[in-house]
């Protein structure tokens, strides 16, 4: 597709250092349609996410953003169309397999494990750990202890970065909303994702915390991680994203640079204008 060229150029113009050589499509949606009992939540949605970029997915309430996210994550099977990850069709999941292939998602609300400590939340993010099978567990502590210790150390390093080091033994249900979002991000990082799907990572979070989450996401971007973000806070989207996809009524109505999008009439009417 010819769409790659201007996008790469654009990414470079925005000062993104992590586009390595030619642009690689990590995630690609091809004409994805999702019907829920007669209601078309997503309608022939196509877009792609290039390796190392941050892509924003915006649109008014009910535009189908979360459904699109759930479809990409394998939780919802598209009625037609395909979701490709590294060129492999992953449409229709199951979600755990999609996650193992590198697409890990966070949740809009309540994605944490409430009655697990912060440390445990992160450890669950490890896809395969000795002692997570029945035989491994029955073999006893000596069998899995070392592997777990290594992951505990890794989790601590991540918690340090997220400024959650002192919350290690706190139940996730006892944290503030913003801290819970951070725990989810930390848990996703433990899974070593290729692409991180974030569903409104800043929703319902105070300004300071939203700013901090934004900085953390920027930090992740700099390490070369690919991010796909659904978010309402357009300021954050503009600062974070290399490219933005705008949805309304289940379809893509525009995509490109946020600054350019602000000038487009359809976008203003469907989304920006509607809000004011």
């Amino acid at each position: 597709m010819t769409a790659e060229m201007p996008l790469t150029a654009q990414s470079i113009r925005d000062g993104v250092e992590t586009v390595r050589g030619t642009a690689v499509r990590v995630v690609e949606l091809r004409e994805v349609t999702v019907d829920f009992g007669g209601v078309r939540a997503v309608d022939r949605l196509s877009f792609e996410v290039l390796a190392g970029t941050v892509v924003g997915l915006i649109g008014p309430n009910g535009a189908g953003k979360t459904t699109a996210m759930r479809t990409i994550g394998g939780e919802v099977k598209p009625s037609s169309g395909h979701v490709l990850l590294d060129g492999h069709d992953v449409s229709g999941g199951p979600p755990h397999r999609v996650a193992r292939q590198g697409l890990v998602r966070t949740f809009q609300l309540g994605g944490e494990f409430g009655r697990l400590t912060v440390m445990e939340n992160l450890l669950v993010g490890v896809a395969e750990l000795k002692g997570s099978t029945l035989l491994g567990a029955l073999a006893g502590r000596r069998w899995w202890r070392q592997a777990e210790d290594a992951q505990v150390a890794r989790a601590r390093a991540i918690l340090d970065q997220l400024s959650l080091a002192d919350k290690e033994q706190t139940y996730a249900s006892e944290l503030s909303g913003g801290q819970r979002k951070l725990v989810e991000i930390g848990r996703a990082l433990m899974a070593n994702p290729k692409v991180l799907l974030l569903d409104e990572p800043m929703a319902g979070v105070n300004r300071t915390m939203a700013r901090r989450i934004e900085e953390i996401l920027q930090g992740l971007h700099r390490t070369g991680l690919t991010l796909l973000i659904v978010e309402h806070e357009l300021g954050s989207i503009e600062r974070l994203c290399d490219r933005v996809v705008v949805m309304a009524n289940g379809t893509l109505i525009a995509q490109g640079d946020m600054r350019d999008l602000r000038a487009q009439r359809e976008v203003i009417e469907a989304y920006l204008g509607g809000k004011r």
Partner: peptide, 25 residues
Amino acid sequence: RIQRAPLGRLLRAMRENEAAASAVG
């Protein structure tokens, strides 16, 4: 042994939030 092992942790995670447990693999 099940309870203390990583397996036990996965079971509790599933109890707390099944969708999230499957979303991390």
